[in-house]
Design a binder for these strands. Structure first.
Lengths: 174, 174
DNA sequence: CGGGCTGGGTTGCTTCAAGCAACTCTCTTG
DNA sequence: CAAGAGAGTTGCTTGAAGCAACCCAGCCCG
């Protein structure tokens, strides 16, 4: 599927997306631009690996989640591994391709923080450099040490926004 | 709309999106995660400012384009300006908020280039630093001079991939 | 040893969004 | 005076998402 020589005809091979676009943004969105896909990737990046946990965390419909996970696995963004047999149970892990989405997620996160913050008390999620604890900016660069980071170098922490909300509605403790 | 104090209830104010997510990635995707939105922003960034031009360039349905443009204007990502009256004709420009999406677009572009290139001959679109002509990497940093760039510092050029395709199907000259 | 829980789905139905084609309205141009 | 550009609008059809219910295998608990 998706052979190099077929690239002029690729548009109708793709399922339901941006036909005729000769741009890698469009190609990227064909794969991860579907509703929920990037949020699933984000959650898996933050350590949610199992179907139920993803479903509950996202509030996504189960059939849609099934769908997205399959697609992300097909696209080699996630990998599905059994962590036990009988009954078979699975976890989803990010591949390198999936981890490479990190800069895009960080950029979106930073944009959301700046322009449509879900909480007025500050960002609900902080990304910090594991090694030095510095905050990560919109380019995925550590504000402390200046290093250009990758997915594995950083970690997400709950930020001030989320604490304020937890106080406002303490019912929803995880 | 979207008052600070209402933020715990914001989820059902939003039209059709990711309920209950306390994360700015979700907030960002509520606004620009809809089908076509980011591609419209990209096209406007590249100088396509008019309805027809966007419609033809993207191959999007006209009613959907109307819809998206309205939403993007409401969200203060685009600005609609008349460039003549009688008959009234409009152009769409990016606001600062819209321009700030640049790093996210660049990250997606780089990801697409690396992992699902629409052309085997190289990237179909090159982003270069206006001032020094250097290529821009996945973080929006100039590979030549090392500067951290913003939307206005860079320009898109057709890359090697697009030339190869133009040769393959020369019918579609713009 | 029966009942409920956990985990990972599938099925069926309904609603909402996207795609498509045709139409409108006002100039402008040939 | 007909055709075309520009910016949409309308109506109909398909396709995706949401929701609730169901399934099945093991395990856990009284």
């Amino acid at each position: 599927m998706r052979e190099a020589t077929e690239c002029a005809k690729i548009t109708y091979v793709l399922r339901h997306d941006y036909p005729g676009q000769m741009c890698s943004i469009a190609s990227a969105l064909e794969v991860v631009g579907e509703r929920w896909s990037l949020l699933i990737v984000r959650d898996v990046m933050n350590g949610r690996r199992r179907f139920d946990s993803l479903q509950k965390g996202l509030g996504i419909a189960r059939n849609v989640l099934t769908n997205r996970l399959q697609r992300l696995v097909e696209e080699n963004i996630l990998e599905r591994r059994a962590y036990q047999e009988s009954p078979p149970r699975y976890e989803y892990f990010l591949t390198e391709k999936g981890l490479d989405l990190w800069p895009a997620l960080i950029a979106l996160l930073a944009w959301g923080d700046r322009h449509s913050p879900p909480s007025p008390d500050g960002p609900p999620m902080l990304i910090v450099h594991k090694r030095c604890g510095g905050r990560v900016d919109d380019r995925g660069i550590c504000a402390e040490c200046g290093e250009v980071l990758h997915a594995r170098d950083a970690r997400a922490l709950p930020g001030p926004g989320v604490e304020a909300l937890a106080l406002a509605s303490p019912a929803k403790a995880t």
